[in-house]
Design a protein around this nucleic acid. Structure first.
Lengths: 349, 349
DNA sequence: GTTAGCACTCGATGGAGCTGAGTGCTAACA
DNA sequence: TGTTAGCACTCAGCTCCATCGAGTGCTAAC
């Protein structure tokens, strides 16, 4: 036995209905709402076939059918194959970014909030991560006597800053001079390179040993502990609205997973570089998410880095809508970060 | 009728037991576990009195008694009056900060996590907020042709940064010169003052109009939209462990409250300047927290700013433990931020 | 003032019975 | 051969009801 067109139509109807209602779908429902020219008995036969093919599950014998992960997979694949159909209600993504936003982290937080409120699921937005950034400018700014702020500008516009301890007698002008030299010497290097050249530099610039040594420590440390990417989460409470999570223990384990940002980041980022990912139930590989699906998309920045946006919802997610919204949001963010004139994220007019 | 010593003891026993178990406490329980030389009947009489005095509630006639908000208030007041008794298990706060931590935000995030895992409740940590900061250094760092990063150092060590647009032909040295002048002119001013003096400055420093105007826009904007304080939350999922929140709707409204950081910050900060606050149930003034209590403490930084740390739990909270932990954590953070030599938060060795 | 005893209340628990949605199967029909 | 009507069967969910037990309030005796 194999799939034919009618089976496919019926399966689709079952999935659509189940996504909408969340209750097992019976043969009569399909016969009345979707395939009006077929009797429920016929549908029953077809459903029985679909179950045998592994597309449908039956919670218990006298209940309707629910789609299996395999069914969702088929459904989503056919959706993606058909191309992303813009969801009318997703249009409003655009308007959400009309206000001025400045810092990248603000944009990311905002995006997570918008994404969750549009989808009514839980949204996660990860800051971009890409090739190792190259130094562009290094500047030491006096903070108080004895300490200075290190500002590092890279080609990716990523700015890392931290305070280092310096000898109290160094004044602002000296710091500037050092900054100039450093910038000249290290421009274009990666952090790894910089670590390698620093001992050499330190030898050459005698007298300012102390500052440079502090800097050296800063670099090496920053290297082994790469700045954890910013993770913004929105709408965790949305998850509790779905009967799938009316079980407290499940809800709690889900929520505590949401709290461990780094783990979450790994899960969302996954291991693929694809523009779109849909992982359904067990495909997520996370036990806590056995009946969740994760849909992700990417956005990119000027520096060619890839950021990830994702939506986590129950397996009976409104995939087409979520995919469409993620798609728009991804484009929106990309536009924003590749900085066409009306405002790259870290820019301000 | 009024309170006497025995009534007080019994009330205390009831509260202790209720905090421990979460189920209404009956007279026999008290008679057996706490006041073994009194019969349950006697306890019943006393309980009846305590109910009349407004210290106990009865969910229904054939259930035990539960403490009222008034009872908790009395309980907490007597706890505070007796001084903060260090809880042995709270000792471990100290060890949690042994690792090196650098950025203030990291410390705050970390504190929230530690606080929630120690108390098993939900923890909130607010970044310090104090008197208006005074400018100390202003530095413009070139980012790419056409844009520069503004680094502002204030007496409170707070560093705000944002990218402004500049004319493409301005080079690093010019930027440094401008930075020097600005620092000289504006050192010691508040942001408000700076806004007032800027037009004057702009007139004097012709030729660099464009940069300064961008800066002016930056200052005024930063002023009307004060940088929202950093809010770290830990252990939201802990709340679901308590039967008080087994009702999904309640849980959801609580969680979505946790998601709106600014609202939450207002609630936690409250309107008092006290070192310790305990707000019980209705005292919180937040409907979603009708059966929560909020315990807060403060910590301070070198600049004399006050930050707030808080724990949110069910009204039947382990007050003495929470207060003791908050107390230690407050001291710990204060030590850290007032920067005794082994490491103020934004410092690095 | 304290206690023993007793009647009473009422939530929780669990079983019996009913209902209705849904299935699988069979036989008849086009 | 595919479709349909009909029927017996299953089973979750609901209501009804009885029982249980934790706890109370009251009274009378110590």
């Amino acid at each position: 036995m194999q799939m034919d067109d009618r089976k496919m139509r019926i399966l689709r109807a079952i999935i659509d209905d189940y996504i909408l209602t969340g209750v097992p779908v019976g043969s009569r429902t399909i016969s009345r709402k979707y395939e009006t020219n077929l009797s429920s008995a016929t549908i029953r036969n077809e459903m029985s076939d679909l179950e045998e093919l592994g597309f449908l599950d039956q919670p218990h014998v006298s209940a309707g059918r629910i789609p299996s992960a395999k069914a969702y997979r088929l459904y989503v694949d056919s959706l993606l194959q058909a191309g992303i159909i813009p969801d009318d209600s997703a249009e409003s993504v655009l308007s959400h970014f009309s206000g001025r936003v400045h810092q990248m982290e603000d944009v990311i937080d905002h995006a997570a909030r918008v994404l969750s409120s549009l989808t009514q699921y839980t949204a996660v937005v990860l800051s971009p991560k890409g090739t190792e950034p190259r130094l562009q400018t290094i500047q030491l700014v006096p903070v108080s006597t004895g300490s200075a702020l290190v500002v590092i500008v890279t080609d990716q516009g990523v700015i890392r800053d931290s305070v280092i301890r310096i000898s109290p007698e160094v004044d602002g002008d000296t710091l500037y001079a050092i900054s100039r030299t450093l910038t000249q010497e290290l421009r274009g290097c990666t952090l790894t390179d910089a670590c390698r050249s620093l001992p050499e530099l330190i030898r050459r610039m005698e007298g300012n040993d102390e500052i440079l040594r502090g800097l050296y420590g800063y670099f090496t440390e920053g290297q082994q502990k790469p700045r954890i990417p910013h993770v913004a989460i929105g709408g965790t409470s949305n998850m509790l609205s779905y009967p799938e999570y009316s079980d407290m223990d499940k809800a709690r384990s889900f929520l505590s997973l949401m709290e461990t940002r780094d783990k979450l980041a790994d899960i969302i980022r996954g291991n693929s570089e694809l523009a779109f990912t849909v992982r359904i139930g067990p495909e997520t590989g996370v036990p806590e998410m056995a009946d969740c699906s994760i849909v992700t998309a990417t956005y990119s920045t000027k520096g060619g880095q890839q950021g990830t946006i994702g939506v986590i919802g129950p397996t009976r997610m409104r995939y087409s809508r979520v995919i469409s919204i993620l798609n728009m949001m991804g484009h929106e963010l990309t536009d924003m970060f590749t900085g066409d004139e009306r405002g790259s994220a870290t820019d301000k007019e």
